[in-house]
């Protein structure tokens, strides 16, 4: 059972990290919480459905096209909506993003319907690996996410653009003074963030199923991963996603008897196991506790120099 839990946790973490990456970058540079970010993931997933099922492309091309289109859509939302809101505080863009999230979620529902759908891929039983069952889709997901993350790392560290991105995120005014076109950088951040979100959406839908409510189901876990890692910390969000993935999958198997009985001080309960119905609530509770006591995240915002 333990190997299976590890596999499941890794899959959860992989998709949380890839979707959360764009959120943490936009949150950091534009200083507002974009509630529409996870809806980009759903839009990406349905665009892949469009290419895969409606146009009969194979899965790889469908995911690629869907991610690129989602990236362009992210750039479009910035140009059309959020660009006019630079420097008006965090509440107006946040409420706008709430409106945008409704438009995107129900736009997907209006176009593709509310029924659960599947991609046109072969669903096989999967392989046995050290006692865990892992499907080809899950192997694909882990591979794609790891490749995307390593690619992103090189982009951020080894290219001029990555340097400009880091400079903009550290201090926008100073970056502008150093003749960095920060608007161009912001646009690129939207492209990367949105296309990664689209990629993550395809991964979730590939592993499970397509559902228009998917974006809403993951919005709080994604925020939780971002805030665990510290806003703007792109490596932090990966670690936050790993922590959350394991806590969410292992949390329902741990006996909290010791904690409830205050380490043997009392004898209130014999066993205390979180009921499986509350599994979706685990990230919510972690988020609330985290923000109450350590709003800056577990990892300090050490973005490197």
């Amino acid at each position: 059972m333990i190997p299976q839990l590890i596999v499941n946790s890794l899959i959860t973490a992989a998709v949380l990290a890839i979707v959360g990456l764009g959120l943490t970058m936009c949150f950091d540079i534009l200083k507002f919480a974009n509630f529409a970010h996870t809806e980009l993931a759903v839009t990406g997933a349905y665009l892949a459905f469009f290419f895969n099922v409606q146009l009969h492309f194979n899965m790889g091309w469908s995911i690629l096209f869907a991610s690129i289109l989602t990236g362009l859509l992210g750039m479009l939302t910035d140009r059309a909506v959020f660009k006019r809101m630079r420097g008006v505080g965090d509440v107006i863009p946040m409420v706008t993003s709430l409106g945008l999230s409704i438009v995107m979620r129900d736009g997907v529902r209006a176009i593709w319907g509310s029924d659960i759908r599947l991609y046109n891929v072969e669903h096989s039983a999967g392989y046995e690996l050290l006692g865990a069952r892992i499907t080809p889709a899950q192997v694909g997901i882990l591979t794609i996410v790891v490749v995307a993350m390593i690619g992103f790392h090189f982009l951020l560290r080894k290219t001029k653009l990555g340097k400009a991105m880091r400079a903009t995120s550290d201090n926008r005014a100073l970056a502008e003074a150093s003749s960095i076109d920060t608007e161009k950088v912001i646009l690129f951040v939207w492209f990367i963030g949105a296309s990664f979100a689209g990629l993550g959406g395809c991964m979730i839908a590939w592993d499970t199923q397509l559902d228009p409510m998917l974006g809403f189901m993951i919005v709080i876990p994604i925020f939780c991963a971002v805030l665990l890692g510290g806003v703007g910390n792109v490596y932090g969000v990966m670690i936050g996603a790993l922590v959350l993935g394991f806590v969410q999958n292992l949390g329902i198997f741990v006996d909290f008897e010791k904690i409830v009985n205050l380490g043997g001080l009392f004898h209130i309960v014999d066993h205390f196991i979180i009921p499986v119905d509350y599994k979706p609530a685990i990230p919510f509770v972690i988020l609330v506790i985290l923000l109450l006591f350590k709003p800056e995240g577990i990892l300090a915002k050490g973005k490197g120099k």
Partner: peptide
């Protein structure tokens, strides 16, 4: 911002 996210989570809890 942070409080907005917390209240959304509390509503779902």
């Amino acid at each position: 911002t942070y409080w907005g996210i917390v209240t959304l989570a509390v509503g779902e809890i």
